[in-house]
Design a protein around this nucleic acid. Structure first.
Lengths: 194, 194
DNA sequence: AGTACTGGTAGACAGTGTCTATGAATGAAA
DNA sequence: TTTCATTCATAGACACTGTCTACCAGTACT
């Protein structure tokens, strides 16, 4: 019943196909029937493993959170960089993920998914948020780490979304998102060298 | 061809019905056929005024932006409050709108709407963003106003979304969004009294 | 009076998610 | 070995969606 890649069952294959599909074709194509089609199975087959479309989508989105978490921990490593520098890295990883995997990022933050509760935020986004809180706590020991981390996460998410569909480019005239990211990091954490 | 409320044509009525519907029943109910049904016309009727479903949704969303803009300018007034205080007001208005009109806010920032370009960001969100840039420029004369305003807008939007579906409550354990808002404002603008 | 045109109707079409009945294959029990 | 039960996928129906097209009742104008 685990979701290993070695699992050769249909359940795992559906998720695999979904991850592939959302990465290459976007989030609109991610219909139940299309996934079943690409998995080479009838449209009723997924029902045995995912009682509803939303649950299949949630399973796919969970892979996105796992992927994002893996990228983050890999980029952070366990090297001795300063908390502030590691937070910069984390921000870069977050936005890079959002911009290189726009379909997956869109799926991960779909209203109906999140509101359904099928996603299991506690298991998906909370671990990475814990890393964020920890780093913020060490970068700004005097502050309320959870609060600042929450505000910073919101800022990253907002940049990811607004930049992702071009609003911020239009509004600010910018062509690179890095200054925005730096502004957000500086705002919440103070300048790089302090 | 204007979109006044006094306009008694079907075009205006469809938008009216849509605004009502999204406010009371949410964004999922906002189908073309349901809007037509509630407007008392056949499902093919809207096609004469809105060639596609997305264009009708865009027209409805534009009313949301107009409403948000009206609330902002009304709350800001032209009183002599400090730029920093007015930015606090603006942030409150923004988040209050997002939380009291969640369906409309969700509609206004739907991926397919924004990516279609039918929304006309230049006419909808840009004016309010201009106000934001102006206030930021006066609150922090030394900074790049457009950049800070962009980062701040992203922060507001992120708080609106993440708080809206409960992620930030779960992550930070908070039960009130105001501290988050204050943290964001303090971060980007400096503390209230400076 | 006749003729365009405006603005709405009604039905078809392909596609969607869900539900149900059916059936093939597998493995356990007799 | 034969029966039986369970697992798992199929196929079709259903209600619903957005879009397209044929039609048609008025209205306004020549």
């Amino acid at each position: 019943m685990n979701e290993n890649e070695a699992d050769t069952g249909l359940r795992a294959r559906l998720i695999e196909v979904g991850v592939d599909l959302v990465s290459t074709a976007g989030a609109q194509v991610l219909t139940l029937r299309e996934i079943a089609r690409r998995a080479g199975v009838s449209h009723g087959a997924p029902r045995r493993y995912f009682p509803t479309h939303l649950e299949l989508l949630s399973a796919i989105a969970r892979r996105g959170f796992a992927d994002l978490g893996a990228r983050a921990t890999e980029a952070l490593g366990d090297g001795g960089a300063s908390p502030r520098a590691r937070l910069t890295t984390l921000g870069r990883v977050y936005l890079d993920f959002a911009f290189t995997q726009p379909g997956m990022y869109e799926l991960m933050f779909r209203h109906d998914l999140l509101e359904s509760g099928k996603l299991g935020l506690r298991e998906t986004s909370l671990p990475l948020f814990g890393v964020l809180v920890d780093l913020v706590g060490r970068a700004r020991p005097e502050a309320d780490a959870a609060l600042v981390a929450g505000a910073l996460w919101a800022n990253l998410h907002g940049i990811a979304q607004l930049w992702g569909w071009g609003s911020l480019q239009l509004a600010t005239g910018a062509t690179d998102f890095v200054p925005l990211l730096d502004a957000a990091l500086d705002a919440h954490l103070g300048p790089e060298e302090r």
